[in-house]
Amino acid sequence: MTDLRAAFLEELTSVAPDLDAASIGDDDHLQDDLGLDSMDFLNLVSALHKRFGLPIPEPDYPRLATPAKAAAYLAEKLGARR
């Protein structure tokens, strides 16, 4: 879970290099708190898709709204696949 959180933050700060991973809170909302726009968010989803091979359909987007939610989502989807 901490690995997934770290991986998520790595992709997040790669899409938004002006964000500092250390200062991002688990419950920070990507759009409302961290200021991602829809293009940044889509680039993040694309990066996660590439890294984990998950389809991440649009209806699942709300489940990536914060680092905590995203880590739980990734754990669930990756666990289900194993």
Binding site: S38, M39, L42, V45, S46, L48, H49, K50, P55, I56, P57, E58
Partner: peptide, 17 residues
Amino acid sequence: LTAVNADRTPDRRLLLG
């Protein structure tokens, strides 16, 4: 858009913008 994106991987999805 929703219909088109459902069949696409994230790197090929479209935004309303």
